[in-house]
Amino acid sequence: MGELLDGIRLYGRLVAARVRAQLQYRTSFALDLAGNFFISFLDFAAILVIFSNVPQLGGWSVAEVALLYGMSNLAFALTDFAVGELDQFPQQIRDGTFDQVLIRPRGTLFQVVTGNFQLRRLGKALQALLILGYALTALPIEWTVDRLLVFALAVPAGTVIFCSVWVVAICIVFWAVDGREAANAFTYGGQFFTQFPINIYDRWLRRFLAYAVPLAFVAYFPALYVLHKSDPLGLPAWLGLLSPLVALAAAVAAGAVWGGAVRHYRSAGG
């Protein structure tokens, strides 16, 4: 328990140090934050352009898709904030600087993800919250205790699922250091995949990305539950309750994959 508290305290200090560093270049930071904020709006602009041509997509209205988008992108923004540093991780393998991580008395994954925090990534979270706010006011949701619970747990669960996917995906660089771009298919691909209703995808793509990689539990199933909407795919509503359990399983699996990958690590001799 003391170790956990110590870890949390260290995490806080590392975050604070990075934040102070990033606030040194204020103009650039402001532009960066604004950039992250607007890039997400252009992202959503694409969805609005789609809905300027059709009233609904795969049986989902614009407000319903906005709900999916808000939930998925809020989880994604938090993921990017928490483990976004994994993007830079392949460089550590290439340079051999991962050796230093291995000899320090902290978890390897902890050290890697705390390498750098980008405060500007929060611009994205802000935008996701705004879209979510729009969806919740536009949709006539009858809030009950269970729906509120599913909704409240969906974003943390989605964040854990995304984080797990990021960790597993980046492990490819332990085997093929140049293969990092393949991880994007699951990280940024996962972000793209989850902001649309999964019933518009072909069956094999759904089996792969929605169930095998459990991306349907980030936004789709919880959103169906909250909206009290029957699944166009005919799957039962209680799947929306499972997101936290799926997140837990994903985290355990990701931890195991990371551990196995680290054991496979051979230094480049940095």
Partner: peptide, 19 residues
């Protein structure tokens, strides 16, 4: 290998965006 990895990602996105 980087080319292959990029191909994989571009292709998977092709399917998603296409649908």
């Amino acid at each position: 290998v980087a080319t292959l990895a990029g191909l994989f990602t571009n292709t998977l996105f092709g399917f998603m965006r296409g649908f």
